[in-house]
Design a protein around this nucleic acid. Structure first.
Lengths: 283, 283
DNA sequence: GCATATTTTGTAATAAAATTACATAAATTA
DNA sequence: TAATTTATGTAATTTTATTACAAAATATGC
């Protein structure tokens, strides 16, 4: 757990806490600064629970105990990530909206980090390792994510491409074969072209991985779905945090892929990195 | 005494401390991070003094006692402290590397949020509002960022395009005119094609904004530079956090643009969002 | 240089705080 | 509704920090 965001973590996991843990969380969120200055007895009293309940609460958040928890809480207060009232307002000036946009992204990354099902990640990495070919499909915002994914995965010594053209998507999924992996990126998970391609590709025996919102059509139709639930309020001003989270998840998958390939694979990648040298001015 | 500078306070006043206080100061300065995790007994032993000497040392630095001292020491370490254990290791399994990748992204977003110069953001927003045309240039990873930027800014009712082709870049910058805004995205800030285009575009009276690393060639040559310093250790496994930060900064710029346009501009954007409805299955 | 005051430091006792073990209560499941 | 699991509190224990006081060490004045 990242101590820079202990507060966000508490906030994010609040609903999954049990009764007395919720009381403790409430007492801390009510005035985190005061919590760092309290003894376990004082905080227990404020929360209306016993001292061991506070202690158990601390351990649940991966801290060694109450003193360690206070320390990390104090540290996360320094960085000052706000998690409430982080919505951009019409009359915000640059000093107000800038940290808010950052906070939204940070908050959602913390949330997904805590929610993500690593066993799904593991399964997807396995499929990526097995795949004969990989296609990344995405439209609109997710098109940029697909492009970024291709920019990473093409280094992996197997045929990788990304597609943002619905006609090409149709043709490729119609011609899908076992051994192909179609990686579908769609925040809504309802984009017709993506869903149609999913049906076609699976019908032809290819594996489909969906990166999408929980319970969406795409999530249901994919062989493996990586489900990402982000805050709803970021779309109005187009600071869609879902794509940020998607990119980080693709980083995770790429990392898993490289680690599975073993250390000598890093040489192969270094060769690719070195190829860029002549494109840059020396400094 | 300001607890944000507790460490430097210890450093500065070192000479005026008495013998055992010097020993304590030495033990803390030697490894401040470890000090925050020690009990008073352990630190006393390390310093070779008695426990009350440590306690007196703490009180000399205007803290309530040892626990309070540790808290404030931990807080003053936050800004500088590196994520020592957040680097992916070769033998990490999925449950280890997944949170690490997230933590790296989160850490850098928090860092940049606290460092970013909002007045530069404001100036860039002003230029975006004034621009007659906007070009986003980026190569490789930054190409995906440029594409994402275009996907946002094309909604703003002015000619916007992104380019990932160096020949097109040359032609466009050669044909640049006053009123044009060239938005250059380059993490290294040394990519030849981008630097050359920057020179050409500025020579022709266009405004150039650079999104790059501090002090880079691009930063120096741009009219306005948004400088982003991220951790160095994320490139080996290609989880480049710089692009994540770049995307969030483009979100900030887009938000600034929309807010400056006023509330009626949201209607225009809503129209664009509604246009996507027929492309999706109902759920 | 020696007696006296002052400061520094440690020992031991005390107090405070946190943690653990265990028992009871609540909630869930069959 | 009984059995099982989970959640929670009480009380004992342990750890940790602080205080009071005495002994050194150092400094000061004669």
């Amino acid at each position: 757990m990242n101590y820079q965001n202990l507060l966000s973590s508490i906030n994010v996991t609040f609903d999954s806490l049990n009764k007395s843990e919720k009381k403790v969380a409430g007492a801390i969120l009510d005035d985190p600064e005061a919590a760092t200055r309290s003894s376990i007895a004082i905080l227990a009293k404020k929360a209306g629970v016993s001292e061991p309940s506070v202690n158990r609460f601390c351990k649940r958040f991966d801290t060694a105990g109450f003193p360690d928890f206070k320390l990390k809480l104090a540290q996360c207060l320094v960085s000052g990530v706000k998690f409430v009232n982080s919505n951009v307002q019409l009359n915000d000036n640059v000093f107000k909206y800038t940290p808010k946009i950052f906070d939204n992204a940070i908050h959602d990354l913390v949330a997904i980090k805590n929610q993500i099902d690593s066993s799904i990640i593991e399964k997807v990495v396995d499929q990526l390792l097995k795949a004969r070919r990989i296609f990344f499909f995405g439209l609109g915002t997710s098109g940029a994510v697909a492009r970024d994914a291709e920019n990473k995965f093409f280094r992996f010594d197997l045929p990788v491409s990304f597609h943002v053209d619905v006609l090409t998507m149709r043709m490729l999924s119609a011609a899908a074969k076992p051994g192909d992996l179609f990686f579908m990126i769609s925040h809504t998970g309802r984009t017709k072209a993506i869903i149609d391609a999913t049906d076609d590709a699976r019908g032809n025996g290819a594996i489909v991985v969906g990166l999408t919102t929980p319970g969406s059509m795409l999530a249901k139709k994919s062989d493996l779905a990586i489900e990402v639930l982000v805050s709803e309020n970021t779309e109005e001003y187009m600071a869609m945090t879902s794509r940020i989270v998607h990119l980080v998840i693709l980083d995770v998958l790429a990392t898993g892929f490289i680690l599975s390939k073993g250390p000598e694979f890093l040489n192969h990648m270094e060769k690719i990195n070195l190829s860029l040298k002549p494109t840059r001015y020396k400094q």
